[in-house]
Nucleic acid binder design. Sequence first.
DNA 1: CACCACCCCTGGACGC
DNA 2: TGCGTCCAGGGGTGGT
Length: 273
Amino acid sequence: MPELPEVECIRRALLPLIGRCVESVDLRRRDIVENPPARRAAGALLAGDVIRGFHRHGKQLAMEGGSGRVVCVQLGMSGQLLVREGAAPKPPSHVHAVWVLGDGLSLAFRDPRRFGGLSLYGSMQEIRAERWAALGPDALDHRAEDLAAACRGSGRKIKDLLLGQGAIAGVGNIYADESLFLARVRPTRRAGRLTRAEVDGLSEAVRRVLARAVEAGGTTLRDYVRPDGGLGGAGALHLAYGRGGEPCVRCSTPLRRTTVGQRTTCYCPSCQV
DNA sequence: CACCACCCCTGGACGC
DNA sequence: TGCGTCCAGGGGTGGT
């Protein structure tokens, strides 16, 4: 399940594609495009464009073409971007779109569960205004004050607030549990009742947990693979996520497993206050 | 505004 | 081995 670190790793892995020309686009499932362009808007998926850049905000990835047009990729639960050189022996299933880049090189969007999808914009300015404006600042470089402002006066559970992308963008279920564990804050605490010191600590924890996961190459869990097919390596860093019933690494108390905001949640009932 | 139920979808884990 | 069942979850919607 790609969260911010996985998407950032994917982005970095795709950077070598900058400067390549999109010779054609094979859209195999139209319904994965959230806002299909008018039929005449040829090139909306960047056919004919030179790839100019890859940008990320939270968990979303934007591929920008030389025309200025942008394809936004939302990976959802099981989405992958795969770079292929030459014809692979067995093409993967559930590939919904392929950008053909010449010299046998191609970029494929694969998403078995189809919780993800593509959306199309005329420019980076447009995607920022129409799509990314609803998101909070990117979690990797947000300021504590951003989180504090979102918490102020809020009666929501703090984990709920982290999972919604409006406060800060990019934290999903895994890193929410990890960040709250590191900051010793109970996921069910009301956001508005955290002290400023706790908010500062949580903000720091979010940044540290995400940065560490990026360094480790993203989390390896179920569906995540890097564009080159390799696996990530942050799974071993998990101290709370998925460890319900196991002893806390700090105090040995068995971690508790509950549900917060319809999401499985693990925390230490002893050292997360 | 908070929060809940539910939906989308499929693969992997697990039980028999 | 092969089937059924449950579960995972990002994001959105619609109701209370």
